[in-house]
Nucleic acid binder design. Structure first.
Length: 595
DNA sequence: CGGGTTTGACCGGCGC
DNA sequence: GCGCCGGTCAAACCCG
């Protein structure tokens, strides 16, 4: 607001300064010919009265302004003006004394006031003459002689004003650029958030149906219970006795020494680094403290450690077109490093989340080598602090993607982190949107938004839905059916993916890929049109989704003001959190998806 | 002056 | 063991 005030005043589109402005200079100003100077003066005036919108300053005298303050200042020498000394404060104080003497008489007081007024006026005129600079004097006194000097001064003023205007234009251009970048980034975040919402909604349905239909499959059932619990624990588990259980980022884990022993007490290596100390002091990431309530009694502690280590290494990469140095995801980041990566002329920047002390979330930003308009942002870790709704959009999406990735890889019985595991998943209505790569060193899911379809790009008005597809009480809703149909057929082949929200959506089409060693048939969805219709219907039917959408859009429009959106987001999270164990904690922002 | 950025140094993993 | 590479640190610097 404050940043843009100068611009709005400068342009003055509403004519707030349509009145003749105050002229601080004593020389005449041609308002028609000196528009730049006019603007400058207006800005100065506005700065003097920051609340001038409400209480505009009174219209000044036409050409000159009086300086009564000079009446009290005898220190300013006016050698050329003897009269001024006489009329100056000497007279003023002498008259005050006399006014005291004449206190009893109102008439004489009135005479004194009149005298003062007269003297003020008189003195003002003299003061203007004596305190002006030479150049100003020349403009006033030497009115007829104002020649080249005057022209030069005007030119100089004009030049200065032009420079100021140029700077302002540059600043405005910068602001507009930032706004555009923010809108672009927010658009991407919103897009991903919508995807996440859709995915989580469908996941809810799938889980329920799978438990009912495939529940007899003991192995599958066990996975479906174990894996989601683990990934629900990805968050800081602030509900867990008030002790945040944020898993450290992969880097933290690497720095802590032996992989997989982070839940123990044998932190080795560079654990004395400030970041580690911060995290330890905050008691973060101790995922092992989450009580085990599942039926995975056969899972050894070793497996658990392995799982945790893998989770910490999970990364979510987002590809989006952006001219900005990094996409606006709503979080606050601090750059802590930059490296030239091999095979890419563009440097890779390393950022750390600074929204909370000790937040383990980090991200890497690098432009694509092939297409430098594509910005690749890789997220790692989970936030251990509340997130504003604008940040929750991206965080929940990336978290969902991470859970998908981890659930798909870790639940695999035939090899965690299989380097050959590569599942290329596609949205039914688009080209490739998500790529899951669990290849070493880090399992990474890439969300490609560079040529992504707009989920809200609706092809035709939808027919009124027979029932709300998003209604939690109606798990046989339209959209979950559509989402789930293809997946359901392959569900048994996606070992572990049945609890992965994103995977359930985006891995419906796996072109001949091997997922966890199982051959997955390529399956083309024929309900593409139905899906877009269903999305539309869902938006119209479900108030939570609509609220979330409105909140996200509002966040973009309002410049991401969290206070306006927290309610919507909180309601959305709370109302849709019933199928995971995130408990809707704000600290679980990255893992508590707004289903 | 505090917070963010820059940038060279450093560390650990990995392959040869 | 050595070099490469990714990732991080931290002092210097910048900026509002």
């Amino acid at each position: 607001m404050a940043k843009g005030s100068g611009l709005s005043i400068d342009s003055d589109p509403f004519g707030f300064f349509i009145h003749k402005p105050t002229v601080l200079n004593s020389f005449q100003v041609d308002y028609n010919k000196n528009n730049h100077l006019f603007h400058q003066i207006k800005i100065k005036q506005f700065n003097q009265f920051p609340n001038s919108m409400d209480t505009p300053p009174p219209p000044p005298p036409p050409t000159t302004i009086q300086f009564p303050v000079n009446l009290n200042r005898s220190s300013s020498p006016a050698p050329s003006d003897d009269k001024r000394k006489v009329v100056d404060e000497m007279d003023f104080f002498r008259n005050r004394k006399t006014s005291d003497q004449f206190k009893a008489s109102d008439d004489k007081n009135k005479d004194f006031n009149d005298r003062m007024e007269i003297e003020l006026k008189v003195n003002t005129g003299l003061n203007l003459l004596t305190t002006n600079t030479n150049s100003d004097q020349s403009m006033v006194l030497d009115d007829g002689l104002s020649t080249d000097a005057d022209q030069d001064k005007k030119a100089k003023n004009e030049l200065a004003v032009l420079e100021a205007e140029f700077k302002q234009m540059k600043a405005e251009n910068r602001r507009l650029k930032q706004a555009l970048n923010q809108v672009t980034g927010s658009y991407n975040a919103l897009q991903m958030h919508i995807l996440s919402l859709m995915q989580n909604r469908k996941a809810e349905n799938i889980i329920n149906s799978s438990e009912a239909d495939i529940g007899h499959d003991h192995d599958h059932d066990e996975r479906s219970r174990v894996v989601p619990r683990q990934f629900m624990d990805l968050g800081p588990a602030s509900n867990n006795g008030g002790e945040a259980d944020e898993p450290p980022s992969s880097s933290e884990e690497r720095r802590s020494g032996s992989a997989g022993k982070i839940n123990g007490h044998d932190h080795v290596g560079r654990e004395d680094s400030p970041a580690d100390r911060d995290q330890q002091s905050q008691g973060n990431w101790r995922q092992s403290k989450v009580p085990r309530t599942t039926s995975s009694a056969d899972q050894s502690a070793k497996d658990n450690d392995q799982t945790e280590a893998t989770m910490r290494k999970a990364r979510v990469s987002v590809r989006a077109r952006s001219e900005a140095p990094m996409i606006a995801d709503g979080c606050q980041w601090r750059k802590y490093g930059q490296k030239m990566a091999k095979g890419n002329p563009c440097p890779r920047a390393y950022y750390r989340c600074t929204m909370a002390a000790g937040c383990p979330v980090r991200k890497q930003v690098q432009r694509c080598a092939e297409d430098q308009t594509i910005l690749v942002t890789t997220y790692e870790g989970n936030h251990n602090h509340p997130l504003p709704p604008p940040a929750m959009a991206m965080a929940s999406t990336t978290s969902s993607a991470a859970r998908m990735l981890l659930s798909g890889s870790m639940s695999s019985a035939d090899g965690i982190m299989n380097p050959n595991f590569l599942a290329r998943t596609m949205l039914p209505c688009s080209s490739s949107m998500a790529t899951i790569s669990a290849s070493a060193p880090f399992p990474t899911v890439t969300l490609d938004l560079t040529h992504s379809p707009n989920p809200l790009h609706l092809q035709k008005p939808p027919p009124p839905p027979p029932m709300s597809p998003w209604n939690p009480s109606s798990h046989q809703g339209l959209l979950p059916q559509i989402f789930g149909q293809a997946l359901y057929n392959n569900q048994s082949k996606f070992s572990g993916l049945q609890v992965s929200n994103v995977a359930q959506d985006q891995s419906m089409v796996v072109p001949g890929g091997h997922v966890n060693g199982h051959q997955v048939q390529m399956q083309q969805l024929t309900q593409q049109g139905s899906m877009t219709d269903s999305v539309t219907a869902a938006i119209a039917a479900d108030p939570n989704f609509t609220a979330a959408l409105a909140a996200a859009i509002s966040s973009i429009i309002s410049g991401a003001h969290p206070s306006n959106l927290s309610n919507n987001a909180a309601n959305l999270t709370a109302s849709n959190n019933d199928n995971n164990n995130n408990n809707g904690s704000n600290g679980n922002a990255t893992t508590s998806n707004s289903n």
